[in-house]
């Protein structure tokens, strides 16, 4: 039994210690907004926050999480999350949409750290998130939109 604090609720999950957080969240806790794309920290589809920091849950074993607060796409809140998600919808960023939970998680984390990211900042913060549909033009534009919205 491992105890995980996800989105403010503590869950006891019956998994081995080496189970990646991703599968505990998806299969045991039943939150499926966090996606599987590669399993080896190459695509970012599985991005969640551990104590507010974005991590790749596919390579983070549950044993490494301890009693940290885990936040998934289902529970992101605050003005950055609202601005990013509003910009994503207004720009119609998603195509297939499968990578977009991870994209949104990374973008929100960026804006929390950096209120006015440059293109270079966006490259650095987002280059771990693959999009096979290549929605990158709109991801970039939507992050700039969200940053502008946060200024007001």
């Amino acid at each position: 039994m491992v105890s995980l604090k996800v989105n403010g609720t503590t869950h006891s999950v019956d998994v081995d210690d080496d189970t990646p957080l991703l599968w505990a969240i998806r299969d045991n806790i039943g939150l499926t907004g966090t996606k599987f794309g590669c399993g080896v920290a190459q695509c970012g589809a599985c991005t969640v926050y551990v104590d507010g920091q974005p991590v790749r849950s596919c390579v983070t074993p549950v044993s490494a999480v301890g009693d940290s607060e885990i936040t998934t796409i289902e529970a992101i809140t605050g003005k950055e999350a609202e601005a990013v998600q509003a910009a994503w919808t207004a720009r119609d960023v998603p195509q297939c949409g499968y990578c977009q939970s991870g994209q949104v998680m990374s973008a929100v984390a960026l804006l929390k750290e950096n209120k006015k990211p440059t293109d270079r900042d966006i490259d650095l913060a987002m280059n771990g998130n693959l999009c096979r549909c290549a929605t990158y033009v709109r991801i970039r534009a939507a992050i700039h939109d969200a940053a502008r919205a946060l200024e007001i």
Binding site: R26, D27, G30, T32, G33, T34, K35, F36, T72, I73, E74, Q85, W88, T89, A90, D92, V93, P94, G97, Y98, Q100, S101, V104
Partner: peptide
């Protein structure tokens, strides 16, 4: 017209096959 699926896909709400339980 805006895409009908952007809202859910930006919020982790769109259901894909892998999400079936």
């Amino acid at each position: 017209v805006k895409r009908l699926d952007s809202y859910d896909k930006s919020r982790g709400k769109a259901q894909f096959t892998i999400d079936i339980h």
